[in-house]
Design a protein around this nucleic acid. Structure first.
Lengths: 202, 202
DNA sequence: GCTCGTAACTTACTTCGAGTAACCTACTGC
DNA sequence: GCAGTAGGTTACTCGAAGTAAGTTACGAGC
């Protein structure tokens, strides 16, 4: 089997087993066996167990970025922008329930560089939010914009984990919940800056 | 040295080394050596490496619960309640910078029971928020209340991680950021429902 | 002042899994 | 038909989790 194809297969199998049993409880021998190949092949292509995990995360990250970018492409207001971005995120999670737990939870643990990959996902998200804030309200304090973006990402991520325990809450409702809590506050801040709002500073 | 004292010492050392190097990169021999005791003693008192980690998390959780409970004791409005709770949380993080990363990130380890301990911390937080919402607005949809609580906890946790990279953002400012984003949305929801007579409930 | 019981501790293993060295084989281009 | 290489394997090393069995410190009861 050609290299690229074999690598993709390995990632798929690894993601599945990691999600099933957890990163620590999974041995490279086991993954190799389920792929139908010997352990050194995994090392040939991914260098280490950690490398394999990072490969999984990286692939998910790429897919998430593409979906989000496509989703927000047509947005015309900050509210629409946020709503579409959140929806894309929750839909992604919904489609990847199993691997999501892995990527979000396991990766943190394991290894500093896997940690970086996960941070990369968050960076995508915060960058996106930061871009909304900055584009619609260029004078916002950069530190505050960053904090807002982190808050939105944190809220969203946490709610994504929560929806796993509440299967009846689908992507649309999850999006509404997040918007209901954060949008008034974000809108408030956006209004205040460009044209000083009626009620100035609390 | 008596058992209780030795256990406390072990937890302190373990927390420190885990935070320094990460859970995986730390060996039990290393912890034992730094405690000044042999490895089987660690197993005698904590059963496993995982057990030791859980011990660390559990201790932190207890401390956080006590501090938060003390902080919110005198609150009279939902806003004050939230603000004091958040402040207590950020102050706790500020005092435990080293071990914080460990407890939140590392603990997500494949080991389910460590994961549960960390979820226990979050449960404390969401319960607290849920209690505010329910006490000030008893007719709120329980599912929505739960979602709101998760959102607030997620936002807070994420901002706590962020402040580690922004040392100039202290607990007070972090609290303000979170309140600025979430309070308008939460207040909005509380207002929408039939206002309870202040004294008539419970 | 001895000895019994137990709490606190150690040495010396076993076991398991990550990572590696060295070797094999089938196909492709020439 | 031979050389080079992509794709693969077997059989190891080594480090760290976990354990079995034994050792010392010491207070209580006689």
């Amino acid at each position: 089997m050609p290299k690229a194809q074999r690598m993709a297969q390995m990632l798929t199998v690894a993601e599945e087993i990691f999600a099933e049993q957890g990163y620590l409880a999974t041995s490279m021998d086991e993954i190799a066996e389920r792929v139908g190949v010997s352990k050194p092949m995994l090392y040939e292509y991914f260098g280490s167990k950690e490398g394999l995990l990072i490969g999984c995360i990286h692939r998910a990250r790429t897919e998430l970025r593409e979906k989000t970018a496509a989703a927000i492409a047509g947005a015309t207001s900050p509210e629409e922008f946020l709503r579409l971005g959140l929806l894309a995120f929750f839909e992604f999670i919904d489609e990847h329930r199993r691997s999501w737990a892995l990527l979000r939870q396991e990766a943190a643990v394991a290894v500093p560089s896997a940690q970086e990959e996960v941070e990369g996902i968050r960076q995508q998200q915060t960058d996106m939010i930061g871009a909304v804030l900055a584009s619609f309200s260029p004078d916002i304090d950069p530190l505050e914009a960053e904090a807002f973006a982190e808050i939105v990402v944190g809220a969203t991520e946490r709610l994504a984990v929560w929806t796993e325990r509440r299967p009846k809450v689908g992507p649309a409702l999850a999006t509404e919940y997040v918007m209901a809590v954060i949008w008034p506050g974000v809108a408030d801040r956006l209004k205040k800056l460009p044209a000083p709002a009626p009620h100035a500073w609390r």
